[in-house]
Design a protein around this nucleic acid. Sequence first.
DNA 1: CTGAAAGCGCTAACAG
DNA 2: CTGTTAGCGCTTTCAG
Lengths: 337, 337
Amino acid sequence: MAARIEDVAADAGVSVKTVSRVLNGYTNVRVKLRERIEKSIRDLNYVPNASARSLAGRRSFLVALLYDNPTAVSSYIMDVIVGVLEACKETPYNAVLHPFDAADDLAARIDGFVAHHRPDALVLVPPHANNAKLLQRLDELDIRYATISSRLRESSIDIGFDERKAAEDIVAHLLSLGHQRIGHVTGLKGHGARAWRRTGYRDALRKAGVAYDASLVVEGDFTFESGLAAARVLLDLDHPPTAIFAANDDMACGVMREAYERGLVVPDDLSVCGFDGTPVSQLISPGLTTVRQPCREMGCAAVQSVLQAIRDPSLHHQERLPYQLKIRGSSAAPGTS
Amino acid sequence: MAARIEDVAADAGVSVKTVSRVLNGYTNVRVKLRERIEKSIRDLNYVPNASARSLAGRRSFLVALLYDNPTAVSSYIMDVIVGVLEACKETPYNAVLHPFDAADDLAARIDGFVAHHRPDALVLVPPHANNAKLLQRLDELDIRYATISSRLRESSIDIGFDERKAAEDIVAHLLSLGHQRIGHVTGLKGHGARAWRRTGYRDALRKAGVAYDASLVVEGDFTFESGLAAARVLLDLDHPPTAIFAANDDMACGVMREAYERGLVVPDDLSVCGFDGTPVSQLISPGLTTVRQPCREMGCAAVQSVLQAIRDPSLHHQERLPYQLKIRGSSAAPGTS
DNA sequence: CTGAAAGCGCTAACAG
DNA sequence: CTGTTAGCGCTTTCAG
């Protein structure tokens, strides 16, 4: 049988409670005792039993990551997960993943979820991160949570990056190449990403003194298919754009597909930019100019902050992480054709 | 405070033990009693406390998914995860993810891992699924595990699909289009996927009466870059192939990139096929002809089998799931150029 | 700064 | 088929 806390206590010649104090990082233990206990722990190869800790301490050591089902298959969430796991690695916490259909009323189901899994903390990505009723209910239940890229002010812990500025940068890049007619495929309603990226697009045009043309902005929903459809609309215009900025990489791929179908060469006949920096942006040919979103870093930071908030419930934390513009082969100066 | 098992027992007028029996699915409870207890559970909104169950029952209700770090960012594992979560959904089990560097000697670290997390069962994907020492140690520790696509016979529960046949199918497809010189970029050593897919390639050639030419087979390691490098070698041959079958989609993208750099048009000048059916295969233009690997289904089946094995340790289960050939725009009859 | 003892909520012998 | 009772291994009052 594995060593238990009382074995450690006996070995170190102290009480069980003192060992527990060391285990939980309390500071009121004499250095000498602490060292003796730590040695016993090593000697006996002692590992605390998580179930017993949970039961006695009324905490699960679980951080739940809530995301929605369409997101489930995107590399965005995969990257966030990598960051979340990384952050948990050096803590006693485990991450558990919970995809929820965005269509479901999560605010109504959250009570049952919490009753079942009893997570100590939650990390929410859009669109759940934008569900005001959900956040309110979590506050009522007194459960700590961190949001990623939430557009709500209600979230006292939110991690993101300057999406508006990133979008502005990428459109400014197109403008600097000489493009004047730049199309934009928007993201899905309800996501902050939609508004921020569109605003960045408009800001870049304004700063360059290029008039905004509403016919160049087409609705998308973050899917490849919507990018394809939007490109059809844009390329069918009497005066089509020479460049298209899609609000994410999948839609940019849709745009590239439509260009391909029409025999248009990217970037000679049409420049295309995406957003997110998903794997496909590197794999596709030509490489897709995009913004690398710091997903991994955001997942990591979200967990770190929310674990801190468990100790200090008053914690308020807004963090904006750096992003990277990735200039690749899909953008170039407009052709003469 | 939430209802506890004794509240349910009191409400139903039975002993705690009987409630426990119902909770754990024992059959030796009279139907009438069972129904009464189930009603009380509903009425009181009772949810068992997982920590207490774990502690008393000496099980964690955790299924750990072990994968390696390069795999971590691939959509392969993302899909497996989706399946694993799906399978856990309707059970009291939670999935926990654990990326391990493939370079690490997992067999040596598994004891510590098990001591810490005490998973009731494990699911292993390649390359860990092929680590004989690891599996042996798990057997010694008496921990149930399921492998996915393991090439070892030692694994008593393994889920996969007929990779050799799938590769044969895809090469047969190229042959049927009229290709005679078909290049192959292999997978990474140590993965069954490498050997199976290469064997399928050779089998297809043999059945079609096409001589095997070793110069058409180039080493790859499943990365985009290795596909790029392999394509360089193949396209530099005096008598280059008219089609290339890469052992996964990322490498196929590398091949397409090299073709793009050389001004070769896919599929007119070169047909390209991948393997896996990752998202990029649909997003890229032209669409990539590939085999959709049933990742989600494998993850799901692996969990189901391994949970069954907890109840019946003698369970022996080998399952081969159906795959799908996806013919897309990247493959066509060889051009006349 | 340290210790003794009382549970956390459930499962599992064991007895009926 | 059902109930009684003793823990599972840890945290945490409450004293000292």
